[in-house]
Amino acid sequence: MTIHLPQGPYEPRTTPLDLAPGTGPLASRTVFSAAHVVADPYADISPDSPAAVDWDATLAFRRHLWSHGLGVAEAMDTAQRGMGLDWAGAAELIRRSAAEAKAVGGRIACGVGTDQLTGPATLAGVRSAYEEQLALVEESGAQAILMASRALAAAAQGPEDYLETYAHLLRQASEPVVLHWLGPMFDPALDGYWGSSDLDTATDTFLKVIAEHPDKVDGIKISLLDAEREIDVRRRLPSGVRCYTGDDFNYPELIAGDDRGFSHALLGIFDPLGPLAAHAVRVLDTGDTQGFRDLLDPTVELSRHLFQAPTRFYKTGVVFLAWLAGHQDHFTMVGGLQSARSLPHLAKAYELADRLGLFPDPELAESRMRALLAVNGGNGGTR
């Protein structure tokens, strides 16, 4: 039956892709999905209250990702760090997810930041906040991801402050960490990170941190939506330091790589694409690069749509697709962020995801899309 979306009539699929979980871990690439959190829609909270999380649904989604062989990148920006989830909520998320990972044998890495800070930022305060979060992540048994810090961006006077801060933290880390460079398209407060708004200068500082502490850096995650820059940085890394792409616009080509190397992955788009992404990497594991590209290239249109400017609101589309896919019973987000994208934007996301066969139950997805149209003043798409 045709559904009438804001962009026009659409005939939904009737069958999904067959993406049953594979067996064994992914082999040729290390792949993390940055996972979203599920809000508790029945919590009686005010706009000033801490986030209310549905822990059962949140952990169930992580088990879904692990079942397909993906790692979980926990408490990252996809989980609404700094956009609805405060440090207390993130700390609880880290503890619970790390325990769940241990129980099911899943791989997990967790974000370490400075979001517990309030008031004017100082370098000493930044170091202390990072140390507190690093200790919690390491105590949980998870790998640490040193996230870019708004407070450090505000307090640092130049590249030397970044070099000294990260050197201090890497000395503190008991195991190799992932360094995360998140661009201002994801968080405007991070403009000028690494001490310069000139990306060439910033890149040199970033690489200097790694070169001085290669034994403490497992890898880097670059989220600049600039494939050429990522390839350049990847080729300049010390031996043994991995590049995890965070480029939600160009991930198929970056993961596939070339004769001079490839990127692993730590991506927000692999939240809705999890089963398909895992299947594609298993194809890549066989040496079939073209088969991998044939599976993932068609998903780029959906990813670019979800991550269109203002990019930081991509989380709304991610949670929307999780609701349509049946991973949660509602389209409510912590901080009320479900209102951050328009109905036409969400309708287009539905169409693109349905064309890809991402919904395990296309009929459920269609009925929920119709309900959303109706509750927003339409006729449920039945005209």
Results as ranks from 00 to 15, higher is better:
250 N>S: 12
240 G>L: 08
232 D>T: 13
213 H>A: 10
227 A>Q: 10
196 S>V: 03
230 E>C: 01
268 G>Q: 12
284 L>K: 10
236 R>I: 06
240 G>T: 06
227 A>P: 07
257 G>K: 11
198 D>N: 15
248 D>V: 01
222 I>W: 00
253 E>Q: 11
250 N>R: 08
270 F>H: 15
252 P>G: 11
285 D>M: 11
243 C>R: 01
220 I>G: 02
222 I>S: 00
267 L>E: 05
276 L>I: 15
213 H>L: 02
232 D>H: 10
231 I>G: 02
200 D>G: 14
272 P>M: 13
259 D>K: 15
285 D>Q: 13
198 D>G: 09
277 A>G: 15
248 D>W: 01
274 G>L: 07
240 G>N: 08
210 I>D: 00
225 L>H: 08
217 V>N: 11
212 E>T: 06
235 R>F: 05
234 R>C: 04
275 P>L: 15
197 S>L: 00
254 L>P: 09
246 G>S: 08
226 D>V: 03
206 F>Y: 10
269 I>T: 14
211 A>L: 01
242 R>T: 06
256 A>G: 11
252 P>Y: 03
203 T>G: 05
197 S>T: 12
255 I>C: 06
229 R>N: 00
207 L>H: 03
252 P>E: 11
221 K>F: 03
203 T>Y: 05
218 D>K: 13
267 L>G: 04
266 L>D: 00
256 A>Q: 14
244 Y>C: 01
268 G>P: 08
215 D>V: 06
199 L>N: 06
208 K>L: 06
242 R>N: 10
210 I>G: 02
211 A>S: 12
264 H>A: 07
284 L>V: 12
250 N>W: 04
230 E>A: 01
219 G>F: 02
245 T>Q: 00
201 T>P: 00
205 T>M: 02
286 T>I: 12
216 K>N: 10
202 A>E: 03
230 E>R: 03
266 L>E: 04
216 K>T: 03
245 T>V: 04
251 Y>S: 05
268 G>D: 13
234 R>M: 10
208 K>T: 13
201 T>E: 12
199 L>H: 10
280 A>E: 09
247 D>Q: 02
254 L>G: 08
202 A>M: 03
248 D>K: 05
206 F>S: 01
221 K>N: 05
210 I>E: 04
252 P>L: 07
253 E>N: 10
223 S>H: 04
261 G>Q: 09
283 V>L: 14
267 L>M: 15
272 P>F: 10
273 L>N: 14
268 G>K: 12
218 D>P: 01
235 R>W: 06
228 E>P: 01
219 G>I: 00
283 V>A: 11
253 E>Y: 03
238 P>E: 09
233 V>P: 04
285 D>I: 11
248 D>Q: 06
272 P>H: 14
224 L>C: 04
253 E>A: 13
225 L>I: 05
247 D>E: 05
